[in-house]
Design a protein around this nucleic acid. Structure first.
Lengths: 361, 361
DNA sequence: ATGAAAGCGCTAACAT
DNA sequence: ATGTTAGCGCTTTCAT
């Protein structure tokens, strides 16, 4: 059968509590000699603590939930962006000896349920909409600390880690404007007066200093292809598209090319995230990069801070973004136009050539 | 405080056991009237069972582990292929009311530890090497049922779900041979006399009916690029490459193009897996497809079968594969050679013969 | 059809 | 520096 604390205690001729203290590193209360003896026996017998028992007896489970949206009970298609984060979260949590419960959420009520069922110490909410988060937290979360990634739904029980989406939008506009683009399409999922997409739009719009068409589309490759195909017909004068996700941008680019539109010579395309994917496609995708590992690390640090040191709920964190120029963006009018503006194509990476060239508005 | 069984019992004027039976659907032992009364109170009070307590008292936890390799304690970079599977596994398990513990494994001992610490009912091992699995299972796994995905390490305690890798290799060779390719390079991670890669190689080699060069490279985009760049120099006469993973093939293709080699006109490239990625690149990637959702569903079905019905350890399952032809493979000698069959093309410089792609240069 | 007792493996709060 | 006493919330086993 299972090796228990009691077994160790008997074998060592001490009480269970002493063993418990040794196991949990409460060495202050035990003599060096017994510590060593117990540790030897633990190894010898191959003792593994029961987390269920600990979770039941103590107020903590050393387990945190990573909760992701599950469209319906039928699917859990994790977005490439969330995928990257989950891996990093697991790694950060494991380093700190926390285990991870991975859970798709189909109905709002499932959040509170998951938290209480396993007596989770904390939870990371990944990519939920602001209004969903409000719903979750309305249903009292008890003692579980919560951090929301990629959400602007600040409220008494939820802090967040997010990218500086507003600045990301600004940088995108700055880049496109610098290349001479004025007539631009903003493509992303439908948004209202808040949330990640809204922030990006605000920043983009403000920096652009002009109106821009908005295309509400799903964040998928296929939706992008569809938009790319009809872009010329519906926005004949547009010279650039800014998509709120790389996967969408890549689809748009493919749709454009399929329709015979040259990228970036006729239409420039930008994405957001800087997934590995951006380097795989042709032209390579210009995008706004966010530091995913840091995002995960920050989320975990915030969570653990609250859990272990019972720190005051920290401020929500906003991480920096930066522009990554690749091949999918170029000066208005195409390479030719860029060159007549005075730049000598020297063998530098495509896309960077035009930046200084078209500088004047 | 927490709502417990006891609270429900008191409120309903019955014993805890009756409530417990209702909660667990043991309706045979309770009258219809009390069932309804109890269910009403459960909802009213918002009762959520404690999984820790249940796991402790019962012999089951209704939790299964999804264990993935973690190169070192520092990283958990889940491969795109495993990522897709994890999402599907979670979905299948959630449908059956099992929770998922996601755990990166850095040291062999961590497997047994994870299983026992949480009293897991089962575990899915994802993408471990055959020899690693042997190590895990050597350290007795107790009552926990285990299924290994993508492994050939059959042994008394581990069944597996795998792709028909041998046939996959055969199909690849058949396709390339049909296009006239004879001088071909096999690219994949180093392999010995067993395992996924070995199977693919065996099938490939046998169908090809000729010797072929083997390039041992890591399964990454960058390693692929590197190989692509030097392919012409090191294998001047080769007309095709078969890579054991899409991501690798995509890198190879990029490296080739970068070196001025046209794909597929001068060199054809094939991958394995059929990730979404294959449709995003140009030319689109010909590959061997495996049904990932089915793979996950099968793994879960096997696991649950063992857990719940205590079925005899089933046979390991081998899933079908099929060829998906896209733009990265073509007849030896290039489109020109193919055109003798009747097709006239624009003879464009870039190798953009992919589906729907129009020459953009 | 329902209940009482015992304990799963552990830890918190006090002893000593 | 170590031991004792009570549970944590649930299920099992055996009554009734």
């Amino acid at each position: 059968m299972r090796v228990t604390l009691k077994d160790i205690a008997q074998r060592a001729g001490v009480s269970m509590m002493t063993v418990s203290n040794v196991i949990n590193g409460n060495s202050a209360r035990v003599s060096q000699a017994t510590i060593e003896r117990i540790e030897r026996i633990v190894v010898e017998l191959g003792y593994v603590p029961s987390h269920s028992a600990r979770s039941l007896a103590a107020k903590s489970s050393r387990m945190v939930g990573v909760l992701v949206p599950a469209a319906d009970e039928e699917s859990l298609t994790i977005s490439p962006h969330n995928v990257a984060i989950i891996g990093q979260l697991e790694r950060e949590l494991r380093k700190r000896a926390y285990d991870v419960l991975l859970r798709g959420i189909a109905r709002p009520g499932e959040v509170a349920e998951a938290l209480r069922a396993w007596n989770l110490d904390g939870a990371v909410l990944l990519g939920f909409l602001d209004e969903e988060i409000a719903t979750f937290t309305a249903a009292s979360t008890g003692r579980t600390k919560i951090v929301a990634v990629d959400s602007y739904a600040d409220n008494p029980v939820t802090r967040g880690v997010r990218t500086d989406d507003f600045t990301g939008g600004r940088l995108a506009a700055e880049h496109l404007k610098g290349l001479g683009h004025v007539d631009v399409v903003f493509a992303g999922p439908r948004f209202a007066g808040h949330g990640v997409v809204w922030q990006r739009f605000q920043g983009f719009r403000e920096e652009l200093g002009a109106d821009c068409a908005v295309e509400a589309v799903n964040t998928t490759y296929d939706a992008g292809v569809d938009l790319g195909r009809r872009l010329r017909a519906e926005h004949p004068s547009a010279t650039a598209v800014f998509a709120t996700a790389d996967i969408l941008a890549i689809g748009i680019q493919a749709g454009l090319q399929e329709a015979g539109v040259r990228v970036p010579d006729e239409v420039s395309v930008m994405g957001f995230d800087d997934l590995d994917l951006c380097r795989y496609v042709r032209p390579t995708l210009t995008t706004i990069a966010q530091d995913l590992p840091e995002k995960a690390a920050t989320a975990v640090a915030m969570l653990i801070g609250e859990i272990e040191r019972d720190e005051a709920p920290p401020e929500s964190a906003t991480l920096d973004v930066r522009l990554v120029e690749r091949g999918s963006t170029g000066p208005v009018g195409g390479a030719a136009a860029g060159e007549t503006a005075g730049v000598v194509a020297g063998g530098g990476p495509a896309g960077t050539a035009g930046v200084g060239a078209v500088g004047a508005d």
